[in-house]
Nucleic acid binder design. Structure first.
Lengths: 350, 350
DNA sequence: TTGTATGCGTTATCAG
DNA sequence: CTGATAACGCATACAA
């Protein structure tokens, strides 16, 4: 069956032209007379030639048309997060304009797997910034590939796509303070790659390697320096539920819970309801992200809405610029406050 | 900065060995004396050489280590579906064992974009089977690439990963019939690429180009030949909600709704509740997929659970086999019934 | 507008 | 265990 595939040389011979001419017919980079074009097309058809071999073309051109996206998580976990999903969609859009495809890569690739330095990519997008991401950065640097970091700090020379996580989270905290809350708990995303869940009182910024977590926590502390802290492993409803249960077991019980993501917030709300308490009458709950958070009907979450698709598109635009040898500036996107009905004044002191 | 990257030839010269020897040091395919290995490693380090250029390597080897996955939808839409997400995770796992990465491709790629025939892929996974998928199949065939189809029929010679959609849906229908239901509505996924929503009474199997939709509908009709049919555009909670509203406007009102996906079912349940009716007392609702369907607490959906991750893994295994020149058999996975509490006997006739 | 020559960076093969 | 050689399939600069 696949004895040997026809090459452009075969096509050229069949059509009676030079290989370079045939090549040009397919790339369209140079004018070709209608007559020879036809001959080449026909020859190709008769030989079952369907266009240049992408491998050879990319060696010659020095470009593969592929952009690598590196995830810290398993793919399934990453895409479980609606923010990531929407962001990837924006990224795919922007890259489609560039004519590039998206190659999914993990940063913990084992021996023999396709890795950042065995993958034919023209550029790389790093998401988040765990410790392992640093290694990824080294690889990318030494290969001289353009790289953009979303929600993480990769040092100078690497454009970033950032969000005003601290300011946004502080805005939520202010909102709660103005409602009269004084005793709040914050439920955070993972602090580091170890991903352990539980109470973490005296944690300092230096111990937190995940930028998003650190910045949002700082925002809370700007307003509530003494907020108790419950750490989760990742942004999942179930994790939020467990956190909510832990919070309810606290004495005294806080009057508000500031969750670092909508998914976590949904879990917290559920836990509160299942315990026979009411949101927001007994406890207020806030989220972060502004995804459509199902599952707490008829309530809607008080949250900060982030432009997730724009984040992806911005990354794509930055990549486009870098491939054109321009050095794009880092981009700072902002969140907007959305008042839902999960926040209200605290219940009267008992 | 990037004046010119070092090549393996530079490294070999620096180390005082032949290029082929240096190559072997990196690939590990042939024994090399410890001494020369060291020399090569050092030479590489001093030149900043980080390993073979993937583009050149893949041209030479004839393999890129990349598997393309073709989606009919936008990426964001595809990953909005939890079944797809989980399946992709399984696929990524299986391919990681193979050492391959996942390239995301769309089947409606425009001019200049990276397409199935300009992408350096070793094999292809097609998901679903819209009409456009047929074109994708032609391309893949003419390039002689191994291809696997998930939940679609690509004709002979193409291994399929299938689900017992018809039998599974019939099992649900039987369950409802045994509870005493006689008047049911089924809320289906999209019939074709046009994706129009609304009632579709006399639709025949021939008019349905989406295999999943057709098969599940057939399952319903095996038990309820006269079931009314409401078509949605895609598997989303909101679509299910709209469908639910349409169903409630029907006269007479059915006693049960068979949704073709859990997400649709959740939407239907919400619509019913918002209309002031109860599930399952007034109307029973069933789903399909067995994903963790949030949003109808405290109920859990009566549904058919499908092995989504296994679907992805099976596809990966099939690809692995084909790349080893074996022709894998098609794989038929089965769903299992899960009784939740959204189904109950119909209310007494009024 | 077409053809000629050259090299992109590797790695398989085989002889030593 | 090491080295010489020959592709892999194409696209570009340049000459005709």
């Amino acid at each position: 069956m696949s004895v040997r595939r026809a090459t452009i040389a075969d096509v050229a011979r069949e059509a009676g032209v030079a290989a370079s001419t045939a090549s040009v017919v397919f790339s369209g980079k140079t004018p070709v007379s209608e007559q020879t074009r036809q001959r080449v097309i026909e020859a190709a058809a008769s030989l079952g030639y369907t266009g240049p071999d992408p491998r050879a073309a990319s060696l010659r051109r020095g470009r593969s048309g592929i952009v690598g996206v590196v995830f810290g998580d398993r793919l399934g976990t990453a895409f479980l997060d609606p923010v990531t999903t929407v962001m990837m969609d924006g990224l795919a859009d922007a890259l489609a304009d560039l004519g590039s495809g998206l190659l999914l890569l993990r940063d913990d690739a084992a021996e023999g797997e396709l890795t950042l330095n065995s993958a034919p990519v023209d550029a790389v997008v790093l998401i988040g910034c765990s410790t392992r991401m640093r290694d990824a950065l080294d690889v990318v640097r030494s290969r001289g590939l353009p790289v953009v970091v979303i929600e993480g700090d990769a040092g100078e020379g690497v454009p970033q796509i950032r969000l005003d996580n601290r300011e946004g989270q502080a805005a939520i905290a202010h909102h709660l303070r103005e409602l009269g809350h004084e005793d709040v708990v914050t439920v955070t995303l993972a602090l580091d790659a170890r991903r352990e869940a539980g109470w973490a009182e005296g944690v300092t910024a230096g111990e937190i390697t995940v930028d998003v977590t650190r910045d949002r926590l700082a925002g809370v502390r700007d307003v509530f320096p003494d907020a108790r802290i419950y750490v989760t492993r990742s942004s999942l409803v179930d994790e939020g539920y467990a956190a909510g249960q832990a919070v309810l077991a606290q004495q005294p019980r806080p009057t508000a819970v500031i969750a670092q993501s909508d998914l976590l917030a949904v879990g917290v709300v559920r836990a509160i309801r299942d315990a026979g308490l009411r949101v927001p009458e007994d406890i207020s709950v806030t989220g972060f992200d502004g995804i459509s958070a199902d599952g707490i009907a008829p309530l809607t979450l008080t949250t900060m809405v982030q432009p997730a698709a724009a984040k992806g598109r911005a990354a794509g635009a930055a990549i486009t610029a870098m491939l054109a040898d321009a050095m794009p500036a880092s981009i700072h996107l902002t969140t907007t406050f959305r008042r839902g009905d999960t926040s209200a004044p605290p219940p009267p002191r008992s």
